[in-house]
Design a protein around this nucleic acid. Structure first.
Lengths: 332, 332
DNA sequence: ATTATTTCTGCAAACGATTGCAGAAACGAT
DNA sequence: ATCGTTTCTGCAATCGTTTGCAGAAATAAT
């Protein structure tokens, strides 16, 4: 790799002048400037990012910390982040933590010593409060998808409204008894979805159905098992709101296994609108999260924090994006 | 962040001694060593990776270049790479190229100036031959999933055998006429799958069915359209081998739309065994690629290249992993 | 006790960039 | 022609490490 001295030699100037031309902060005469640029072009010089970072500049790298890339909610968001980062000359480092706080802390230390410019975390949850300290230490941080407190800039879905819309929609289609198969209430997003569900029921004057609200289910397998269990115990709702698309897929499978039809006998809704959710049978009616857009916004916000900082005595910005109903064929 | 001088001061030694203790290359007396280690511990010192990189050391970072993270073949492989990298103290930078060679070249330049230690590419294909030059410039490179030539270390599936096994399995189940819905033949992996299909037919004394071998299809939509087209023109095979799971999903949908059953009227097989392929209806019989394992191997190989180099006059190592049949319910 | 080894430690020079400072060159004003 | 500005450029220090070299201290040999 060619360095700044070689460029300087080729242009017949000193290294400082080359640096000044490239950074543009300090004026250089037009004639030397063009000579330098020609040399840069000719040698295909690219400044060494480590040296720049060491000197106190930014390294233009951000750390993206997620639980597990195999969870399908993340790829689209990552794409939004990566595209936005690239557009601004930033590079993205990926870390999977499996929800493990120790692993996460190791990653954070490891990246900080690489002089990373900032972090996007999708791993915020109770037990990870140490994340809240980073901004105080001068590390720019944005939370994405999952929120923790109100002191860190965050990009999330309006989860309460998403579940509200879904429930209301099923009620409007004449579904009377709606079971809720939800994730763990320790994550605010599932708490919010539960609340949205309750609000829609209440507004419609419908009581919360007994034994038909299940929390703590996760993934396709749980959706299947929970629904199977429900049906075996004689609890047959005529609608199910699952708070993720894989859970909804498991639910549908359990319903089919019991010899019932979707949506003929039981309507089913999911949540997230993952890429494969239109390919299922029946195509899944669900609540869309604009993952790509959320990634874009989180990344924009982070780059803003890195480059402009956050003015003192300013509140954290909590960016709540609207949920959108995607109507397909799994509700009658 | 605390630096080596502060540690040196705390331990009452010079910075060089601290460095020597930590790298361990040069002997230091036990007594000073313990003093230094205590200071390191107390101040929670972590060497600045940029400074180390600048000095000529490795930065312990690898670049992972893929077409698009939303393509579901990648997340599992990425996970394998990331886990392996982490285990060896390496960090992974993610780049999506959308198959765009210019974008890819920009990424490569950008990462090289960050002193990245090596690359894993899943983007190799005709038109990207410039990738073959990198090893000659001293940049460690491994190809994953997609192969290009034989001069670069590569980790791929035994694609020919995968398609051979799939075809043979359908024949063994009494399927007579097997359509092939394949990707573009410019990628060797699709060429290989085609050859495996042909070999199985030939071995069984079955002729290649006319108008039922389609190349260049990609994704769910193409699978759907191609199958629909086939059925509308009166070409009704009693089996379909789709060379990706999403294509197979589209095929199944088209079959259902035509009022036919899977596998009752037509058997369908996919390829890849993506995470969602067990959740489909019917559950998809397919050929599994061990993506996670492939990621692990690619990463191990790359780290080996980085740390030990490749002995001169050595051939590239092409690591071909076995394909495995996953039998579910979409073949009669 | 003196010298010859061995073992350890500190100094200073790199790595490649940026930037304050001061000197050189160019210009205009008298 | 002299002086004062302005504009540009180079020197050298700096960021945080690592490492060759040489000197200091400790040990062994005479």
């Amino acid at each position: 790799m060619v360095n700044i001295k070689e460029v300087a030699a080729a242009a017949g100037v000193s290294a400082s002048t080359v640096s000044r031309v490239l950074t543009g902060n300090i004026p250089v005469s037009d004639i030397t400037k063009s000579r330098v640029l020609a040399a840069v072009e000719k040698l295909n010089y690219q400044p060494n990012a480590c040296a720049q970072g060491l000197k106190g500049g930014r390294l233009h790298t951000i750390g993206l910390v997620i639980p597990n890339i195999r969870n399908l909610v993340f790829p689209a968001a990552i794409r939004g982040i990566e595209d936005t980062a690239g557009k601004h000359g930033y590079t993205v480092v990926l870390c999977n933590t499996d929800e493990d706080a120790d692993k996460e802390r190791l990653y954070i230390d490891n990246l900080r010593r690489r002089l990373i410019d900032g972090f996007i975390f999708s791993t915020a949850r109770p037990g990870h409060e140490y994340l809240l300290d980073l901004p105080g230490e001068g590390v720019p941080v944005v939370f994405l998808i999952r929120q923790l407190g109100k002191t860190v800039d965050t990009v999330v879905l309006h989860n309460e409204d998403g579940a509200y819309q879904a429930t209301r929609y099923m009620l409007s289609r004449g579904v009377k008894t709606i079971a809720l198969i939800n994730g763990g209430l320790d994550l605010p997003l599932y708490k919010d979805r539960y609340n949205g569900y309750l609000r829609a029921l209440k507004e419609a004057g419908v009581a919360e159905p007994e034994r038909m609200v299940i929390h703590g289910a996760s993934g396709w397998e749980d959706g299947y098992l929970v629904m199977k269990d429900l049906l075996q115990h004689g609890c047959q709702p005529d609608g199910v709101l699952a708070t993720s698309d894989p859970k909804a897929m498991g639910v549908i499978r359990a319903i089919h296994d019991a010899g019932l039809q979707v949506p003929g006998d039981i309507s089913v809704m999911g949540f997230d609108n993952l890429d494969f959710s239109s390919m299922t049978d029946p195509p899944l009616t669900t609540v869309a999260q604009p993952f790509y857009e959320m990634g874009v916004r989180a990344c924009q916000r982070l780059i803003h924090l890195i480059e402009k900082g956050r003015p003192a005595n300013t509140r954290a910005k909590i960016d709540v994006l609207p949920a959108e109903l995607v109507i397909r064929k799994s509700v009658r």
